[in-house]
């Protein structure tokens, strides 16, 4: 069953220089219990897409289109209605664990408040549950640590606290926005493992937002590649990795260092992402695409199905003419 169904989602921001379109008509499906990676460079709109789903866009941002969670439309709900869904249905973990916890409140206070509010637990009960959750996240000496302030935790430990907090009300969907970007590489793999275990145990679907193609390979079933606020390609991770259809996907995959290849010069994608103040008329990737022809610069390719479960938005996909 489709848990999250996003259709033609558009996110724009009113700024001093006019309207910036961060997300331009994205379709996205997350099945219950699935793990989906949303991959893209900085500025591809991936974070704004997820904030729009949570109803957490900045004040000057607006979202249009449709975001359905378990067949309930989320766009247009007011803050009170959204608050009934947040934590209990969707939870989110943010990029920088150093700033995502409130430095003025003890970890215990921050962890228990959701349990008390959403699950109606007594404070003592909520505290015991929070300790149990931290134990499950392999936070050492959780019973004592929970009484401390966030600045007394390391970055990796803070991210565990945030994940434990996000999972505390057993949401159906967890959105993790670059959960490992601010962490050491050694800590990254443990956080990914913790996410995978939580998914297995709670049956929570996970949307992993990342620019790191490397962590997608190990941790996700499906992937969506975002560029210029649009979906370029989507499909099962193993099949996309084996044979990408979109030149942008191929560029991303080539930019990952590999052991089975001579990487003395790591290939990169030349050029910069498009200026979202003045989005290009055609394919947003055309300016940087080695295969681009005239048509790419004038006509926006639609996101079309090319194989079972796989879709690509390209006039000249890599597996043959469109």
């Amino acid at each position: 069953m489709t848990l999250l169904r996003v259709r033609n989602l558009r996110v724009s921001f009113a700024t001093g220089d006019g309207t910036v379109n961060a997300v331009n008509g994205v379709d996205l499906d997350v099945e219950a219990g699935q793990s989906l990676a949303v991959v893209g460079e900085s500025g591809s709109g991936k974070s704004q897409l997820m904030l729009a789903v949570m109803g957490l866009l900045a004040r000057n941002g607006t979202a249009a289109g449709s975001v359905e969670l378990e067949s309930v439309e989320l766009l247009g709900l007011d803050e009170r209605e959204l608050n009934r869904i947040r934590s209990r249905r969707i939870a989110m973990v943010f990029q920088d664990p150093m700033t995502a916890l409130n430095p003025y409140l003890r970890v215990a206070d921050q962890m228990t408040e959701g349990l008390v509010l959403h699950l109606g637990m007594a404070r003592r009960e909520a505290l015991a549950e929070s300790v149990r959750l931290l134990d499950a996240m392999e936070v050492p000496d959780a019973r004592r640590q929970i009484a401390m302030y966030p600045h007394e935790f390391s970055g990796g430990m803070r991210q565990r606290v945030l994940i434990a907090m996000a999972l505390s009300c057993r949401p159906r969907l967890l959105i993790a926005d670059e959960p490992t970007t601010a962490l050491d590489v050694t800590v990254q793999s443990r956080i990914m493992r913790i996410l995978a275990e939580a998914r297995a145990e709670l049956g929570t679907a996970v949307v992993l937002v990342t620019h790191d193609v490397g962590i997608v390979a190990g941790g996700c079933e499906h992937m969506v590649v975002l560029y210029g606020g649009q979906v370029m390609e989507s499909g099962p991770v193993d099949r996309v990795f084996a044979a990408p259809y979109h030149p942008y996907t191929e560029g991303l995959l080539n930019a990952v260092p590999r052991l089975d290849r001579d990487d003395s010069r790591l290939p990169s994608i030349p050029g910069d992402p498009p200026d979202m103040n003045r989005p290009p008329a055609g394919c947003p990737f055309a300016a940087r695409c080695p295969r681009a022809v005239d048509r790419c610069r004038h006509e926006l390719p639609g996101l079309l199905s090319r194989a079972p479960d796989r879709r690509v938005a390209c006039h000249l996909p890599l597996d043959g003419p469109a």
Partner: peptide, 11 residues
């Protein structure tokens, strides 16, 4: 950022 976390919790 921590206020966004608090809002994401549905407080």
């Amino acid at each position: 950022s921590f206020i966004r976390t608090a809002r994401a919790k549905g407080l």
